[in-house]
């Protein structure tokens, strides 16, 4: 009876854990470790190179749910605030990070390009990339 109760409890709460996604900011292995505030500076193009390596932040496409989570958690900026930021930067001659269509593309780009930094689901991380930061819902 006790086993049945435990099994039922596990089955009952398992879906809750599976919905709590875990995500990772990843970089090319050429890049040193960065703090949370430095990652923000890289994605706002305030920090553009380090140790003679050009930093290349990559975003998922606008509207992607993981991108929205990243911008809310790491950049602490809403879509509208980021729009105003990049409109001003456009006048100053600066471009926003490039967009990639999928997490697979982000991972492949980060693996291949020196200085590249992106974000993907944690369960897609492997030894080909370096994990800079992890967060969950």
């Amino acid at each position: 009876m006790k086993k049945i109760v435990i099994a039922s409890a596990v089955l009952l709460f398992l879906p809750l854990f599976s919905f709590a996604g875990e995500y990772a900011v990843i970089s090319n292995k050429s890049v040193k470790s960065f703090s949370e505030s430095e990652i923000k500076a890289i994605f706002l193009k305030k920090l553009t190179s380090i140790d003679d390596i050009t930093l290349v932040p990559v975003n998922l496409e606008a509207g992607d749910s993981l991108r929205l989570k990243f911008e809310e958690k790491l950049l602490d900026m809403s879509f509208e605030r980021l729009k105003s930021y990049w409109t001003k930067e456009h006048y100053l001659g600066h471009r926003p990070p490039v967009n990639m269509k999928s997490e697979e593309s982000v991972k492949a780009f980060v693996k291949k390009v020196d200085g590249a930094i992106g974000y993907i689901n944690s369960n897609s991380v492997d030894e080909s990339v370096k994990v800079l930061y992890k967060w969950s819902d």
Partner: peptide
């Protein structure tokens, strides 16, 4: 790149972005 209002656009694949106001 796909054009976004207020962020200019790239000319072909050249290192040239144009915009205005």
């Amino acid at each position: 790149e796909e054009y976004q209002l207020g962020e200019g656009m790239q000319v072909a694949s050249l290192p040239l972005y144009v915009g205005g106001y």
